[in-house]
């Protein structure tokens, strides 16, 4: 039994009772405990939204930044010190809406960060408007005639952008989700885990029952997750059956392995050498 209590803190939790975020929070703790990463060795970065509050409810280092901007902050921290273990928590509006451009860049950069998207298909913090993943026709106070947009398919999008590690988890399958998170953290490049999350207050469609009837776990023995076309097919499954598990994984090197100035170690650890700098300045 892994010790998850070391990640508990005294800060009052501010989510609604029954929120899918609790399952995700527990899965994160379980994964960190399984991987034996001490609280002081973790850096959690988040944006704005209910999902982005996650780090406050964990005993760890965190930077809770601006709406949509968690990935640039996390990338900066990783470039500064690539020995850090960085987890990013964002919601669907935060990541796929406000932060869309940063997601595209992160996928291409392939830096070793694990991104958990708490995808509840609705805006929680601002009380129930449509999100990029709300289905076409989804009715809200802001979209009383129903959403006229098509829903975004973030996993298909990520795959088309060359993502190296893609997974889908479900907040009701904590053990399974914790394994996905661990696999994401172990992956040397950028890992995106889209997590089906229930919002008990504002999304009356994508409920625990909705997912219970549809979610099935990909069999690791049968499905190897190494074929992009098969993976693309899986990302298109939604109506009756929704796959969870590792959708796609390819061999990769982290971005930080490709950058010349980082080859002598993390930027943070390199020494200030005034003689060398003076020489470079004099030669310029």
């Amino acid at each position: 039994m892994s010790n998850t209590t070391q990640y508990d803190n005294d800060y009052e939790n501010k989510w609604c009772p029954g929120c899918g975020n609790f399952g995700i929070l527990n899965a994160i703790k379980k994964s960190l405990a399984d991987m034996e990463i001490a609280p002081e060795k973790i850096l959690m970065v988040s944006g704005i939204g209910q999902a982005a509050k996650t780090p406050h409810f964990l005993h760890c280092n965190f930077f809770h930044g601006l709406h949509g901007r968690a990935l640039p902050v996390a990338t900066g921290a990783k470039l500064a010190d690539h020995d850090l273990t960085i987890l990013v928590n964002m919601g669907d509006g935060d990541c796929y809406g406000e932060g869309g451009n940063h997601l595209l860049a992160a996928l291409r950069r392939n830096i070793n960060i694990t991104l958990l998207v708490h995808n509840n298909m609705v805006y929680g913090l601002t009380k129930g408007q449509a999100s990029p993943t709300s289905r076409h026709g989804f009715v809200t106070k802001a979209q009383p005639q129903g959403v006229a947009y098509q829903a975004s398919n973030p996993l298909a999008l990520a795959l088309s952008q060359g993502a190296g590690f893609l997974a889908r988890g479900y907040c009701g399958e904590i053990e399974h989700l914790s394994q996905l998170i661990s696999a994401g953290i172990s992956y040397p490049g950028f890992s995106l885990i889209d997590i089906l999350q229930v919002c008990v207050s504002f999304n009356k469609e994508n409920t625990y029952t909705f997912y219970k009837d549809r979610v099935y776990t990909l069999d690791k023995e049968e499905y190897k997750a190494d074929d992009m076309h098969q993976a693309l097919d899986l990302t298109m499954e939604w109506e009756d059956k929704i796959p969870i598990g590792i959708i796609y994984r390819k061999e990769t090197r982290s971005y930080t392995d490709e950058l010349a100035p980082l080859q002598s170690g993390p930027l943070f650890k390199q020494t200030y050498d005034p003689k060398k700098i003076q020489k470079a300045i004099s030669a310029a």
Partner: peptide, 20 residues
């Protein structure tokens, strides 16, 4: 080189927070 200026400023904030 970042995807936009918003990223640039957030990136340097992340890097500075992490110590450089």
């Amino acid at each position: 080189q970042t995807e936009d200026e918003i990223s640039a400023v957030n990136m340097i904030i992340g890097a500075s927070y992490a110590g450089v």
